[in-house]
Amino acid sequence: MLKSVEVVLLGTSVVAPQDVQVLQVMTILGGAPLVSGFVSHVEGRLQGRRGPRILQPYYDLAKLFRKETVVTEESSWVFLAGPVVAFGCYLIVPLLIPVLTTYGLPLGYMGDILGGAFILALAGFAVALAATESGAPYAQLGGSRAMTFGALIEPTILFVVFAVALITRTDLPYALAATVRSSSSEMVRPGHVLAGFAFFLVVLVDTGRIPVETHSGTLEFGMIDEARTLEHSGAPLALLKWGSAMKQLILYTILINVFVAPWGLAASGRPGSVVLAIPSLLGKAMVLGCVFAVIDNLFSKLRLFKITEFIAAAFLLAVLAVLVFYAGGG
């Protein structure tokens, strides 16, 4: 009797894991412009401006998709293929990470954290290649810088993965999220705190936030990631912009749902909890975005040659996380 009431209230229907997986991709795809719009709105508010509308990125994308695409005669198909490949990569990564659910989804075991990092790196490579193909000096400079600093931050990512592997004996993101959820003492063990903070710094570098790069400036000499897209226009530019917003939300999701706050995820395939997980993720991402906006206003941009110091600090934290584990505690 009781069971049937529960059935009426909550429903027995379960969303198929494949559908949840598609929903994860759609969440990242649809939510990314919202999150980046919210962050730039908060940033504007903190600087005493009114800030752009929260939905502004959607309007920008719609406008860019309507515009014509201009390509120089010298550049080959790589120039146009780059943004598409990168966009495809950003669509694959949400399949591998815990976006909405606590339980692993069928395709989630296709790749571990390193696999996800590789696909993100492939996307960066495709964009850099397209930038180089444009033949314009600033875009090439951006592509070369992005590759340089991307290579420098790579060891930190590896050591964060090692730390995760030492905690969970696997390198699946789902496993670490489950470990963190299992008890509050997991949350404050030094190895986890160090690895989490190192990953936070990695996110700062990879999303091109302030200690490393001003993402809203127009001065080409300080640009890294931004400069790569200078020569693109129309739909490819829209794909690049959308892609970088998705990359930002993907990195936020990994930081939140794997390291910092893996709560509010759907524990079962019930439609209600799966649907509820979407606003919960976007809400958490917006809170994290506020943290980044505050950092944006508190610090100044580092000189280009000082960025290695910043990366060295991130590397230090990640290495210490691994060392502390070897010392027996962690």
């Binding site: 470990t179 063990r189 502390v324 505690g329």
Partner: peptide, 15 residues
């Protein structure tokens, strides 16, 4: 999975 240290050891380690 390596177990998390006790609270005392955890605090000492963090410090």
């Amino acid at each position: 999975m390596s177990p998390a240290p006790s609270t005392y050891a955890g605090v000492a380690d963090v410090v």
